[in-house]
Amino acid sequence: MAEVAPWSQGTKPATAATVEPPQVPARPTTAPLPPPPPLPVPEPVVVAPRPVAKTETRAALLVPLSGPQAAVGQALANAAQLALFEIADSRFRLLPLDTRGTAEGAAQAMAQALSQEADIVLGPVFSFEVKAVTPQAQEHRLPVLAFSTDRTIAGGGIYALGYLPGPQVARVIGFARSQGRWHVAVLARADDYGRAVAESAREAAAAQGADLVAVEYYDPAQPDFASAVRRLAAARTAQRPIDAVLIADDGPRLRSLAGLVTSEFGAGAAPRLLGTLLWDDIRLRAEPSLAGGWYPAPPAASHEAFEQRYVKAFGPMPANVPALLAGIAYDSTALAALLARQGKGDYSPAALQSPVGFLGAGGLFRLTPAGLAERGLAIREITPQGAREIAPAPDTF
Rank of each mutant, 00 (worst) to 15 (best):
L164T: 07
P165F: 10
Q168E: 15
V172D: 07
V172N: 03
I173A: 00
I173F: 11
S178W: 03
G180I: 03
W182Q: 12
A185S: 13
D192Q: 14
D192T: 14
D192R: 11
Y193S: 05
Y193L: 14
R195N: 11
E199S: 12
S200Y: 02
A201D: 11
A201R: 03
R202H: 10
A204W: 00
A205H: 00
A206S: 10
V213L: 05
A214C: 04
V215L: 04
E216Y: 00
E216P: 02
Y217N: 06
Y218Q: 07
Y218K: 06
D219W: 14
P223Q: 10
P223F: 10
D224K: 07
A226P: 02
S227Y: 11
A228L: 12
A228E: 06
R230T: 15
L232M: 15
L232H: 05
A233I: 00
A233C: 01
A234P: 01
T237H: 03
R240K: 14
I242F: 12
A244N: 09
V245K: 09
L246G: 06
L246H: 11
A248T: 08
G251R: 13
R253C: 00
R255S: 05
L257I: 10
A258G: 13
L260K: 02
L260E: 10
S263L: 13
S263Y: 10
